[in-house]
Write a protein that binds this DNA or RNA. Sequence first.
DNA 1: CACGAGACCTGTTCGC
DNA 2: TGCGAACAGGTCTCGT
Length: 275
Amino acid sequence: MPELPEVETIVRNLRRGTDGAPSLIGQTIQCAHLLWLRTLAEPDLETFQAILPGQTIQAVGRRAKFLTLILSESTLVIHLRMSGDLKMERSETSFAKHDRMLLEFASGWRLSFNDTRKFGRVWLVNDTQKLFSNLGPEPDDPALTPARFHTMLQARKRTLKPLLLDQRFLAGMGNIYTDEALFRARIHPLQSSETLDLQDATRLLDAIKLTLAQGIEANGASIDWVYRGGDFQNYFQVYQQTNNPCPSCGQPISKTTVGQRGTHFCPHCQTLKGA
DNA sequence: CACGAGACCTGTTCGC
DNA sequence: TGCGAACAGGTCTCGT
């Protein structure tokens, strides 16, 4: 569920500490619990539980939708996938229904990884290189200029929406922010990537950056029964707005399936170019 | 290489 | 009311 802005929000909250909870940084791990085996991708459970105790969290970061906890001697990488969430709680709190992995700290606090759908994964590695080697650029990478983005789009001949969701092409976009960014750029989700000219590519890159920045500013989106405190859902222009009037032209928003993902767009404002 | 289908999971909402 | 189907913010793997 979480996309770049939601992950970034979680990272910032863990770094800063929130309503009574201390920062994750500086916490020393006493032990780790694993309640669902498959949540741990690497290494095996015994190694995982043997290596963690005594290590201190030095930094909390993000790459694409991965969270990174830099420890004294290794790095703990977490991907929340569709339903994962991370929070600090007191150690005496009982485990919650969908807790999958927990780190107990010497301070009397604990980090819980709760993940209803069990898609989330955790890796404990010495080097994140391998894990991150196939990721595309961060949307706010200064090296990602409009010209460079245009070249990347030209180099593929792929339907735009699935391409933007492909983390090897661009890191961090998910279903919500892709629909919102395509609408903002007035580009049809089925448009083929190589048909975009430099002007289209520039508009799209701007739209992506703006949409993500707005998402972060709003602390992410909270929808369905998964609430994370953000309110970007109040700013959706097309996502989950099926049949509602387009904020720009008033025509009803359409919903279709593209690349097996629900896709929202305005058929009047986002026309298929050259078709 | 591009694309679609199927897996992995649980919970909620929709349609009859 | 009840029950199955469809769907949900992600990604991987396989087959064409």
